[in-house]
């Protein structure tokens, strides 16, 4: 065994370790580039009151922003968790209603309860595009300065709340 053989053996071993580690990664999971950045500026209307909403409507506390739609089946699964979270008075919860019919969105909420303080109506999907939304539902956590700290794609559940969201929310 000379040095070169050992060198090649090391390459072989590291490729193996690399492939083994690769087995445990989800290739579809993509980190959002917006984490650490401020929530994008917007000017849209409220779903219920039709009032104009902008970034100034956010409160100076931890905020959960949830993107949902009445046509979205997965949103149904996470809804009870959102209602549960909304009971926490230290947290503000804002909804973004993504590409939806106003009447259907209202009907959907009246049946299942409304966890949101305000709901931004994003009928064209512009704000959602700025947020890099690609799968409804999506859930964001913002700090009191509107900086995005966390993003989850897909429905949230108890495990995600306990393990990922609560540590950030209680900071």
């Amino acid at each position: 065994m000379n040095k070169i053989t050992i060198f090649y053996a090391l390459i072989f071993i590291s490729v193996t370790i690399f492939l083994y580690k690769g087995l445990h990664y989800d290739p579809k999971k993509i980190e959002s580039p917006l984490i650490g950045k401020t929530f994008p500026e917007f000017k849209l209307t409220d779903l219920y009151t039709k009032d104009t909403l902008t970034n100034s409507n956010f409160l100076e506390k931890k905020t959960i922003v949830n993107v949902w739609a009445s046509w979205c089946l997965e949103c149904e699964r996470e809804h009870s968790y959102l209602i549960q979270l909304s009971k926490n008075k230290d947290i503000d919860m804002i909804g973004i209603n993504y590409k939806d019919e106003t009447s259907e969105a209202m009907g959907w909420l009246s049946m299942r309860g409304n966890p949101y303080r305000i709901i931004i109506k994003d009928s064209i999907g512009d704000l959602s595009l700025d947020l890099g939304v690609y799968g409804v539902p999506e859930t964001y956590i913002l700090d009191k300065n509107q900086v995005i700290q966390y993003k989850h794609i897909g429905p949230i559940n108890n495990q995600i709340i306990q393990e990922e969201m609560l540590p950030i929310l209680s900071e």
């Binding site: 492939l19 083994y20 690769g22 087995l23 445990h24 290739p27 579809k28």
Partner: peptide, 28 residues
């Protein structure tokens, strides 16, 4: 092994990946 995303559908399963990886390492 499902390690990469492909347009050509194939049911895959990471647990099988470990077995193939073992074979791969042993044979190569």
């Amino acid at each position: 092994s499902g390690i990469l995303i492909s347009v050509h559908s194939f049911a895959n399963d990471p647990s099988r990946g470990v077995f193939i990886l073992f074979m791969l390492v042993a044979l190569i």
